[in-house]
Write a protein that binds this DNA or RNA. Structure first.
Length: 258
DNA sequence: ATGGTAGCTCTGCTA
């Protein structure tokens, strides 16, 4: 089975590209981020016609997440339980698979703007709450997958300019420690289970020909629990949608289990 | 040293 993540930066604008991509890449589940629309505007019918169920946690203007799946999702959670958050950044659900239930958490992690700002402090609090909740989810669900736009480049090799951007947003010691904390709970970065091309990125700034110059970051991730790790057979970044006219600034990441 | 682009909303914010 295959699970993917894609920050679409407005599902209203990107729906035709999502439908095209799903036709070419009929994954079993897809976590979407930055829908930038409310649930009443979610294109449920078009996605149902494409063969997907959907559970959504939408929001106007900013944020908004959804899980698309071939089979119905159950036990849906929206946002981190007991963590007050005005922003719609998390949706989690259980999928029933031939190998048993699989818990999928899809997140649009806080950007954080710059170290020292209120937004960065919010990012740190949000990551702490996420870590404590993932700890519980992992205790309850040994087959756990955490996908999304983490807004963290975990290592220097995940950035086009690790020296010039040292300790700037996505690159700070604190953000990277939070990423490692998630791994230390018993998750692993599926992408790094395999040999990968150098300068593999999942996001490129729209400005200054970022994609054309491959000035990007790897900030979209798929973490799998120890129980799932032996079944991971591939993990790739699909750069193709970033070449589309009117692309999202992010491109999909796909993991293959089994 | 600053601005560059995109989306949403409507003027500035977020990324």
């Amino acid at each position: 089975m295959q699970i993917a993540t894609w920050n679409v930066n407005s599902l209203t604008v990107r729906l035709p590209q999502v439908l095209d991509w799903l036709q070419a890449n009929p994954v079993d589940a897809l976590g979407l981020q930055e829908l930038k629309l409310t649930d009443d505007k979610f294109p449920l019918l078009a996605l149902q016609e494409a063969g997907y169920h959907a559970v959504t946690h939408g929001q106007k203007t900013y944020n908004g997440v959804a899980i698309l799946s071939r089979t119905p999702a159950r036990d849906v959670v929206r946002n981190i339980p007991e963590h007050d958050d005005a922003q719609a950044r998390i949706i989690a659900a259980t999928l029933d698979t031939p190998n048993g239930p699989l818990r999928l958490i899809n997140g649009y992690f806080v950007n954080g703007q710059a170290p020292g700002t209120d937004k960065f402090a919010y990012k740190m609090r949000w990551l702490e709450a996420l870590r404590e909740w993932v700890r519980k989810e992992l205790a309850a669900n040994e087959r756990l997958v955490l996908v999304g736009d983490f807004n963290v480049a975990p290592e220097d090799r995940d950035s086009f300019d690790p020296v010039g951007l040292r300790e700037t947003i996505h690159h700070t010691t604190e953000e990277r420690q939070h990423f490692r904390d998630l791994l230390e709970l018993g998750m692993c970065d599926a992408f790094r289970l395999f040999e990968q091309p150098e300068k593999s990125f999942s996001w490129w700034d729209y400005r200054m020909l970022g994609f054309q110059k491959n000035r990007g970051l790897r900030i979209d991730h798929i973490l799998v629990s120890e129980a799932l790790r032996p079944s991971v057979s591939a993990c790739v970044i699909d750069r193709a949608p970033r070449k589309n006219p009117q692309p999202s600034d992010h491109t999909p990441v796909v993991v293959t289990l089994g």
